[in-house]
Design a protein around this nucleic acid. Structure first.
Lengths: 187, 187
DNA sequence: CGCGCGATTGAGTAATTTCAAATCTAGTGG
DNA sequence: CCACTAGATTTGAAATTACTCAATCGCGCG
């Protein structure tokens, strides 16, 4: 049950059984159905989520009603509206399930407490945050320097299984092109 | 001299004189002239840099010779090719001075050592990394959802002094539009 | 069979790029 | 004080790319 989370953490830091017990005590488990929202724009964001199974999208709906996908999040990923979570402000993104999804939830209090009880956990989160930051910069670079087709091919290379799990409309919303343009890339 | 760095850190964590002494011992000081490279694509990246004064750009030159600015970095910011720095691989970006710049340099060894000597420093870096990650996601969203003019206006709002410090060509390379298009936005 | 959703196609329009030329500006030396 | 130059910016015009809106296609499922 909790093994996924433990294995995931042990890749970066080592924890005794007792320490992990302490860590895990701060998490709760939740299940969501396909198409269900975990939170929506404007909500408070009570948790950061570790995805045990399933697939999520972090999306922004703009004033014209267009959907933009800031991030996909799959098994073993951490996801949230981090700005809203850390600053206890309202979500500017929504987090929605593309598949039935099971997550472990960690509250801000739990997160803070964890840093005090198990200081190494901060090294773990630091490592995760760094990795996320680096990945974001790569994505920025891709948006700056590559055209739609190159971005699409790069996405396929990086996540070969993604197209089997989400519609092309979703991929287009992630790549920053219209679905029609994406459809026309290979003709 | 070192006060800038200390003030900067004390905004997140508190340090005794002695602790800060210990921290600061891991840094070295370097000066760079305008247009000088701190490192270039393909170089090893020995340090993460805290900018005491000046202005940098983190850039990527693509196969067609076009320059893309992943990030500007100014006073009190931390900058590097973090992927290359943490993984001891070769830089995929260059870091170049847009103004004469003074930086404090922290090596990977120093960084690691610091985490052992002054554990709170990891909370500090975690906070910085989170902030960087959140800012990057905002930038991604901006590239996905806004047109050139909106992105430009947003940049001006966020960094009102930047246009006085860098050419419009540079701003265009940051926004992801040609300099001609940027020039035509207000006509 | 027929509905519904996603994907594709067509046609016209809008935004952006490219390449070339003209203009502006700050700094230098006479 | 002026002429001159290098770099940055703007402008023009054509070509390309992507978008929008509408219509059609394809397919799995009740």
């Amino acid at each position: 049950m909790s093994e996924k989370l433990r294995d995931h953490m042990e890749k970066v830091i080592s924890l005794t059984d007792q320490e992990f017990q302490l860590v895990f005590a701060h998490f709760t488990l939740e299940n969501f159905k396909k198409n269900e929202f975990i939170f929506q724009q404007g909500d408070s964001v009570k948790y950061v989520y570790f995805i045990r199974s399933g697939l999520l999208k972090l999306v922004y709906i703009d004033d014209l009603g267009r959907e933009h996908i800031v991030s996909f999040a799959m098994e073993d990923w951490w996801e949230s509206d981090f700005s809203a979570f850390f600053n206890s402000t309202k979500a500017s993104f929504s987090l929605k399930c593309l598949e039935p999804t099971t997550v472990f939830c960690l509250s801000l209090k739990g997160y803070t407490q964890l840093g005090i009880e198990i200081p190494q956990i901060e090294r773990f989160f630091l490592q995760k945050s760094n990795a996320g930051f680096i990945a974001s910069q790569q994505r920025i670079l891709s948006l700056l320097s590559r055209n739609a087709k190159e971005r699409y091919e790069n996405l396929l290379k990086q996540y070969p299984t993604l197209p089997q799990r989400v519609s092309k409309t979703q991929l287009a919303a992630f790549l920053g092109v219209s679905r029609e343009t994406l459809s026309r890339l290979y003709t």
